[in-house]
């Protein structure tokens, strides 16, 4: 049971990563590898502050700010200095590896005995359920601490989802979506498309940094390696989410990204339970994303061929 709750919580936390990837990859068609660095950046910034006694909420908010800075730099490299989008991300990601080591001072910071957002969630739980150690949930025994973290994470992600939804339906958010959809048009309508890309990448990496900060607090440590390959996790979640909701409406896509992230984590947990070697996880995720990316095109071509054959 703890395992299930655990993967649900991680899925929720990583849904912010998925939303960030959704912004860069789906809205702007920008394969932004900065994600790998800004995920760790969020973790390292918040971890260092938390061990130094900073309020974890504030620490997480500052992680967001650092993430936005990382994203803006990638955006500026791409738009102002005309560096190819992949390369711009690679440069910032690479630089962030050193930055993260500098921030942490070492490659790993444990957070087991510090006050984190998880501590907050647990104390809310014990406030509600009193001294109960575990509760009965549809016939399952669940630890109160696990349960309260799960509920808090759901609420937090819900809030983020609503904020993002509202943002994307404002004039600014609408212009941002249009920039990804047709940047020639949006320029002709008086929007500075470069500014939109920078702002979008800032938002994307800010969310990803929060995701990293929350994961560090949940798992109880920040590690300089923890961001490697997260862009592919995010992509996998976005793709699964799109398949689940099958809609291009903003609200549905946001819901889809969260669902996709949770489902992806559950699949991972099941695969590991069935004996998958954890070291193979990234290989399998990459293969999955590859298939998910090429499959729709392949199916289309197959369909076209059949139609042609039928018409002939």
């Amino acid at each position: 049971m703890t395992l299930l709750v655990g993967s649900l919580v991680i899925g929720l936390i990583l849904s912010l990563l998925a939303l960030g990837i959704f912004i860069s990859f789906r809205i702007f068609h920008f394969p932004d590898i900065t994600a790998d660095g800004s995920f760790t950046l969020g973790a390292s910034v918040s971890a260092v502050m938390i061990v130094n006694g900073v309020n974890p909420l504030l620490a997480t908010a500052i992680a967001f700010v650092f993430g936005t800075i990382a994203g803006s730099i990638t955006g500026i490299l791409n738009t102002k200095f005309k560096i190819n989008n992949l390369l711009a991300g690679i440069l910032v990601m690479t630089a962030l590896y050193s930055v993260n080591l500098r921030i942490m001072g070492k490659s790993n910071i444990p957070l087991l005995f510090d006050i984190t957002l998880m501590t907050y969630a647990e104390s809310i739980g014990s406030f509600i359920f009193g001294r109960l150690d575990s509760i009965n949930l549809f016939g399952w025994q669940v630890y109160v601490s696990d349960f309260s973290i799960l509920i808090s994470a759901s609420i937090l992600i819900g809030i983020f989802g609503v904020i993002l939804y509202v943002f994307f339906r404002t004039n600014l958010g609408t212009a941002m979506r249009a920039t990804g959809d047709n940047d020639q048009m949006i320029r002709a309508l008086g929007v500075n498309a470069e500014y939109m890309v920078i702002l979008g990448l800032a938002l994307s990496n800010g969310l990803i940094a929060i995701s990293g900060a929350l994961l560090a607090q949940y798992q109880g440590f920040a590690d300089v390696q923890m961001g490697i390959g997260v862009i592919v996790w995010g992509l996998a979640s976005v793709i699964i989410g799109e398949a689940l909701v099958g809609s291009r409406l903003v609200g549905m896509i946001i819901i889809g990204a969260v669902m996709g992230s949770v489902l992806f984590r559950l699949l991972v947990a099941i695969a590991l339970r069935m004996g998958l070697n954890p070291n193979d996880l990234k290989l399998i995720t990459a293969a999955f994303v590859f298939i998910a990316l090429v499959l729709p095109g392949l199916l289309d071509r197959l369909k076209n061929k059949r139609e042609k054959a039928a018409n002939a």
């Binding site: 509202v166 943002f167 339906r169 404002t170 004039n171 600014l172 958010g173 609408t174 309508l189 008086g190």
Partner: peptide, 15 residues
């Protein structure tokens, strides 16, 4: 709605 604000700053008002 994108055309309504042609040439203006886009703010956080509901589109």
């Amino acid at each position: 709605v994108l055309a309504v604000y042609r040439g203006q700053k886009r703010g956080l008002g509901w589109a």
